[in-house]
């Protein structure tokens, strides 16, 4: 086990939505390279409390890269320098002694800052509430093996369903768009046989509620690079094509009336 020494952290402090906010510098004299990035922040917070100062607020929970609660722009990159890795899984061995590390919250209009590094991502929930589900009330489900799902289909749906809803895609996008998130959710359900009945209404509702909160996608591809689950932007194409088809179907229906 080895150690890193003399790290400087420039951390965004903001005492609530109304506060202007500012960077504040902190020193970490020595930390094990086995520590995770968040454990390093824990150590700093313990030190701050020891000095009678308020700890830095940041969101986190599972620390296993699955709950999507952690966030953080680290040196300008969502979830920091390691590809396919959420902040909580980032370890100090990715840094070196003497580094200056800049830590900021997600920055996006749809994710207002609550305090310090904590933001409000509930706009994601609104997208799901608008249509990100299969209507299957408890009790009425048919026998599970009645509808076989070809393995490649199940695998593709799972690739999309792996999204942890952390918001890195939005934070990384110059437009603050949520297309990768919405596309992952739409594709997960629209690919499966069980999701077909609501396929067209789902995509319309979700895309439209996404547009209510988030910026528009101009194909930068930053989202895919930032995604800790490496979800593919191909799903965005799938969402767009379903959306278009849904609209055309709508037109047909209207013209028939």
């Amino acid at each position: 086990m080895s150690h890193l020494e003399n790290l400087v952290l420039k951390i965004w402090r903001q005492n609530g939505p109304g506060d202007a906010g500012r960077f504040q510098s902190y020193r970490i004299d020595r930390i094990s390279d086995e520590a995770s990035f968040l454990e390093m922040l824990d150590v700093l917070n313990e030190k701050l409390i020891g000095e009678g100062l308020e700890a830095i607020t940041f969101d986190h929970d599972c620390r296993e890269g699955i709950c999507g609660t952690c966030s953080l722009m680290i040196d300008g990159r969502a979830h920091g320098p390691q590809k396919g890795t959420a902040t909580c899984q980032l370890h100090m061995r990715m840094f070196k002694s003497g580094d200056t590390i800049v830590v900021e919250p997600w920055r996006a209009t749809a994710f207002p800052i609550i305090k310090d590094l904590m933001v409000d991502r509930s706009a994601f929930d609104r997208i799901i509430e608008s249509g990100g589900f299969i209507t299957a009330s408890t009790g009425g489900a048919p026998e599970a093996n009645l509808t076989p799902v070809p393995k490649p289909v199940a695998d593709a749906a799972m690739d999309a369903a792996e999204c942890i809803g952390c918001g890195a895609c939005v934070a990384a996008c110059p437009n603050g768009a949520a297309n990768l998130f919405a596309a992952a959710k739409v594709s997960h359900l629209n690919l499966l046989p069980q999701g077909q009945a609501e396929r067209w209404s789902r995509v319309q509702a979700m895309v439209e509620s996404m547009d209510d909160y988030f910026g528009s996608c101009t194909n930068h591809g930053e989202c895919e690079a930032a995604c800790p689950k490496e979800i593919s932007i191909d799903f965005i194409a799938l969402m767009h094509s379903d959306y278009l088809k849904a609209k055309i179907k709508d037109r047909k229906l209207i013209s028939q009336q």
């Binding site: 299969i134 076989p148 799902v149 199940a154 695998d155 069980q194």
Partner: peptide, 12 residues
């Protein structure tokens, strides 16, 4: 049954 109907992508 319930979870499959809801779209849980279990291994196949």
């Amino acid at each position: 049954d319930q979870m499959v109907a809801q779209g849980v992508p279990f291994a196949r």
